[in-house]
């Protein structure tokens, strides 16, 4: 019964690289209201399988709502078959968004693993509108070259993009944490945002803690209702269990226990 549930139309479906797709949905009401870091909850078909909706960070919200996703299971497999004109049942936008950095912040470091890059483009769009002189750095780690795309939209924002792959097929070989020693972060002017696999976000927590730098993390858990009702998507945090859908998905960087 939420006023946030609507049926929209697919505008386009695009494969950006072997593993990643971009789905554009004509949802003006979401474009007008979504804040960076929030997500939408999509029913990929009207069948009983896949049973749950699937939550996706909003990748961009200009003319259309853009969803950036990887095919990892039955839900995203169905989604990859959606085409222009298909109806799609969407709840959103929902969840706690990123907090916008205060005035003393001059440098934004975003650490993303794989599809965890999804919430950061809409965020860069918003940051650039308000703070044209902010230094933007994106540290991106992918499994292999299939998980790397051109990221030109980030570069267009003047964002410095550093890419690592586990196998070294593109960029630096190894984990994204390999970049940490080369990036100067300072509690006075830096803010860190991260989204990706839990071990990566745990490494970001440690790095930020070492320098006393504040930040935020976008968390993920298997989700059913996304409206705070089922309490299914709870994660462990320093103040007990918190739901990703309602208390998050954006948490203070040091809050989750990964």
């Amino acid at each position: 019964m939420p006023s946030l549930q609507n049926t929209f139309q697919v505008v386009s479906q695009q494969k950006l690289c072997p593993k990643f797709y971009r789905l554009c949905i004509d949802a003006p009401v979401i474009c007008q209201t979504v804040k960076p870091g929030q997500f939408v909850h999509i029913k990929v078909n009207d069948q009983l399988f896949p049973f749950f909706r699937r939550p996706f960070s909003v990748y961009r919200a200009q003319k259309y709502v853009e969803i950036f996703y990887e095919v990892v299971g039955p839900g995203t497999a169905v989604m990859a078959r959606m085409k222009k004109g298909d109806p799609v049942d969407v709840i959103g936008p929902i969840g706690r968004p990123f907090s916008m950095p205060d005035k003393k912040i001059k440098k934004i470091v975003m650490v993303a693993g794989g599809i965890g890059v999804a919430p950061f483009l809409i965020f860069c769009d918003a940051l650039r509108k308000k703070h044209s002189d902010l230094e933007l750095i994106l540290l991106y780690g992918g499994r292999s070259q299939g998980h790397v795309y051109d990221m030109k939209e980030f570069k267009r924002h003047g964002c410095q993009v550093h890419v690592a792959t586990n196998d070294g097929s593109v960029g630096k070989k190894g984990y994204v944490s390999g970049f940490f020693p080369k990036i100067n972060i300072d509690r006075k002017d830096t803010f860190i945002y991260t989204c990706g696999p839990n071990p990566m976000m745990a490494a970001v927590q440690t790095w930020a803690r070492k320098y006393g730098v504040a930040g935020e993390a976008v968390c993920e858990e298997v989700m059913a209702c996304a409206l705070g009702a089922c309490l299914g998507c709870s994660i462990k945090t320093r103040s007990g269990y918190k739901t990703v859908c309602y208390d998050g998905p954006v948490f203070d960087l040091q809050e989750p226990i990964f």
Partner: peptide, 21 residues
């Protein structure tokens, strides 16, 4: 309530172990 993972989808349904949080 119970530790995560608390839910999963199944064919035409779901499992839950929320633990009356």
């Amino acid at each position: 309530g119970n530790p995560p993972q608390r839910i999963m989808e199944t064919p035409s349904g779901m499992l839950n172990a929320i633990g009356i949080e």
